[in-house]
Design a protein around this nucleic acid. Structure first.
Lengths: 343, 343
DNA sequence: TGGCCGATAAGAACCGGTTCATCAGGGGGA
DNA sequence: TCCCCCTGATGAACCGGTTCTTATCGGCCA
């Protein structure tokens, strides 16, 4: 009861293997009558192409790789990756591409995994996420000559194709909104300092505050590892300092929620005493009291965009080196309001 | 600049393809001197085995499949799957197995994907999650004869191997705890009614309430789709009813947090007026005020356990049909307390 | 010195497809 | 009537490994 092969079909139909191959692939070289007969027999036998045999002839693996370097625990917390993956999937599923996923312990292992996958012909291309300054993965992927799309800002991506959105714009919008509300001391609780998008957001944040007028807006940035614990700790520190900020912008929703809890624990009213803005919207942000003002973006669409880009690259189609997706937009909710008091 | 093959190595070493194959796979048939030489050359050339060619000889694909039927959006919200996947990954990564992931639109498509993957020899086995009553996937997988591990209770899994934990026990523990705190009216905000684990939890919940003594504890179950919106809506309904429960047990943390917000919005004190318990712990549960009492389990460990089971099945090792993982345990936090008032 | 055995290696077949070169046969044009 | 070309189909080579069969060589023992 083994799986039928094209040789079985050929025998049944009384033709050669070659004819069967042509018939099944819709290629010329067989008459319509024979083709119909072969198709009928293959259906009857329940034939499925063996992808290994096809791959051996230089065909695509029809699979895309994604190695994620994230501690297992944080993966569960951050909706970002799951949403990104589901967005990628929507695009891949249509063309019956699969996604090969592996969680890795560090970037060295990540490179190793990609090298193996590519070397073994298991994937046709891959994504790179969370680029940091001087990222070794860029050079490694370039030398592999594997189709790669970087999900993130092009600045550190070298010759690699990128899909990105303008975080600076979103930060600027946020700062201007807070300044308009009368805030004159704004803090930013940022993510990992080495990541490209963190530094870009940092720069944009500082710039936007300075642009509000010389010495008009005090600004402060602290870095974290994205966890709620760190977010809470940093918030506690900020709120205990003599020059307490009246608004805090967090780099993800987990930290924003943690920060909100700390504020309430310290009997501060949000938004009267403190305004809070979260980067990345999620049900979490909407469910707390007050609901959080958030920078929202369509992450699945972002993933889908990256997938399209990678598929085009793999197909050898002409594709832009860098594709800019829509920037995040500010959704004001209950956690932001006018700054209280004089000054 | 093509990828080197064993033929290239053979030529360089002046030996036959067969000898190279034996040398690279640590099999007898070549002298130690030749083996060392071949290994050196293969390293120098940067040779990688072509997985397609290996698979063609009946070798394993060294890949496991997971097709997920979940609306893209909920995937991002629920930490469960990401944690499960990261747990599976830890086990797979060690043996350099990869995980093939695909998000599907319904169970029919899920079966189709598995049939294709298996037929094409792309995966060696697969997981089945979220079994529902009379699930067509069970029969489909059985007829495919593909190694499969069901993640969930064995009751509907037919002849398929399962990895599960005793949800009933956890529910019972929770109810007994609430009853001991003096609660006499307990509601359960459950998940999708057709899922096996939902009905099992439902039954256990009712049983535990009845076991507290005839007519002693009022109980009520409402079903939802696991979203925060539904959780909020149901909570609002429960709390507005004349016979308001003094404790609510939610089937996930998202709904529990949403429920907490609703309670606070209705100016009820948690836990004085209402006790809240969440199924599945997450940073989310700990970050809100008060932190939620939760049924916590080690989901990554659960996934790792399932992965071990599946790998054993694939290897043809003797494996138990059904493996029971540790049940969830109750972590009391600030959201539960004594029921207020008389009765 | 001849014969036998084990170690080592070569060579070929095979896995299941794709693709190229080749060929038979029939129809049409000169 | 002859020749050419096109269609439909065949058979073989090939992809990159694994594995089985066969061959060679050297050493050991009688």
């Amino acid at each position: 009861m083994k799986r039928p092969t094209i040789a079985d079909i050929a025998r049944r139909a009384g033709v050669s293997k070659g004819a069967v191959s042509y018939a099944l692939n819709g290629q010329p070289g067989v008459s319509e009558a024979t083709r119909a007969n072969i198709l009928a027999i293959s259906k009857e036998l329940g034939w499925q192409p063996n992808s290994a045999a096809r791959a051996l002839n230089g065909a695509r693996a029809r699979t895309i790789g994604l190695a994620l370097f994230r501690p297992a625990r944080t993966l569960g917390m951050e909706p970002f990756f799951m949403e990104l993956i589901s967005g990628i999937e929507t695009e891949l599923a249509d063309r019956s591409y699969a996604l090969m996923l592996q969680v890795v312990a560090d970037h060295t292992q990540e490179i190793e995994v990609y090298r193996r996958w590519w070397g073994e012909g298991r994937v046709d291309g891959a994504f790179l996420v969370d680029l940091h300054l001087g990222d070794a993965r860029v050079e490694a992927m370039r030398s592999l000559n594997m189709p790669v799309v970087v999900i993130g800002h092009p600045s550190q991506a070298g010759p690699l194709s990128t899909v990105w959105s303008d975080d600076g714009l979103a930060i600027r919008e946020t700062v201007e909104y807070l300044v308009a509300l009368g805030h004159r001391s704004i803090a930013r609780v940022a993510g990992l300092p080495r990541l490209v998008h963190t530094t870009l957001r940092d720069q944009a944040f500082v710039q936007a505050c300075q642009d509000a007028g010389p010495g008009r807006v005090e600004h402060l940035i602290v870095h974290t590892d994205y966890t709620g614990e760190e977010g809470a700790r940093m918030t506690r520190r900020l709120l205990s300092s003599p020059r307490r900020p009246t608004a805090i912008v967090y780099d993800n929703d987990i930290m924003a929620v943690a920060g909100l809890s700390v504020a309430q624990e310290m009997v501060l009213d949000v938004p009267a005493d403190l305004s809070i803005v979260a980067w990345d919207d999620s049900p979490l942000s909407q469910v707390v009291r007050p609901p959080l003002t958030a920078l929202t973006r369509d992450i699945p669409a972002y993933g889908a965009c990256a997938a399209r880009q990678l598929l085009a690259l793999i197909a050898g189609e002409p594709a832009a080196l860098s594709v800019e997706d829509r920037p995040a937009t500010l959704i004001p909710r209950g956690s932001t309001g006018p700054a209280r008091g004089p000054r």
